[in-house]
Simulated assay, not measured.
Amino acid sequence: MRGIYTDYARAFLLTDQRAHWVVSEAFDILWVCWDTATASDNLHRYAWCLLRSRVMLRATCHHDGRPDLRAAVFSTREVHNNSTVPGHLVVLTELIDLFDAITRLPDDQMDAAVLHYLCGTPYQAIAHVLGIAPTLTHAVDHHARATVEALLTTPNPE
């Protein structure tokens, strides 16, 4: 799990050092709480919620408390590979809007979207990491994509 956890943490915390540190912290806490974790209904879910809480404590947030993923746009392949292509600024703006919309999703949908689309985690691994049924992963992704599309096409009242 360390690699996937680190990829997820890096998406929000932006540096390898911060990501590795928070993953190590989560594993240390999990070790201290091991009896409680193994007594829970779902050890993978317990560990994921622990990691997620540690990441979100350190993530940059919007004024409404949701995490801010916009800076992660600058670490994507699309930005690096197309930095000299005409229209690059339009692509950059669209990616920023997309990443911002992802943070408006419910937690499981946001986590699945970040893991799959930003970190490249396959669906089978996402189910294992999040501690959800494998069949539920596709449903969560389907709802996330529909919600993001609606968010991107509906004017924001802010």
Rank of each mutant, 00 (worst) to 15 (best):
G3Y: 10
G3W: 09
I4G: 15
I4S: 15
Y5H: 10
Y5C: 08
D7W: 13
A9R: 02
A9M: 04
A9D: 03
A11I: 04
F12S: 00
F12D: 01
L13W: 06
Q17L: 14
V22K: 02
E25C: 07
L30W: 10
C33P: 05
D35A: 14
D35R: 14
T36F: 12
A37S: 08
H44S: 15
R45K: 13
A47M: 07
A47T: 12
A47K: 04
L51R: 00
L51Q: 04
R52M: 01
S53T: 14
R54M: 09
R54A: 07
V55G: 00
M56S: 07
L57S: 12
A59F: 01
T60Y: 12
H62F: 12
H63L: 15
H63R: 15
H63F: 15
D64V: 06
P67L: 00
L69I: 08
R70W: 05
A71W: 01
A72W: 05
T76F: 09
R77H: 15
E78K: 05
N82I: 00
V85D: 08
P86V: 06
P86I: 06
G87N: 07
L89V: 11
L89M: 11
L89K: 11
L92R: 09
E94P: 08
L98S: 08
F99A: 05
F99Q: 08
F99N: 06
D100A: 12
D100K: 06
D100F: 06
D100V: 05
A101P: 03
A101M: 03
I102K: 06
R104S: 06
D107N: 12
D111S: 01
A112V: 02
A113P: 05
V114R: 02
H116Y: 05
G120C: 10
G120T: 12
G120R: 12
T121G: 00
T121Q: 02
P122M: 09
Y123W: 08
Q124D: 13
I126A: 00
A127V: 04
V129K: 00
T137M: 01
H138A: 09
A139P: 10
R145L: 01
T153M: 01
T154H: 05
P155D: 05
P157E: 05
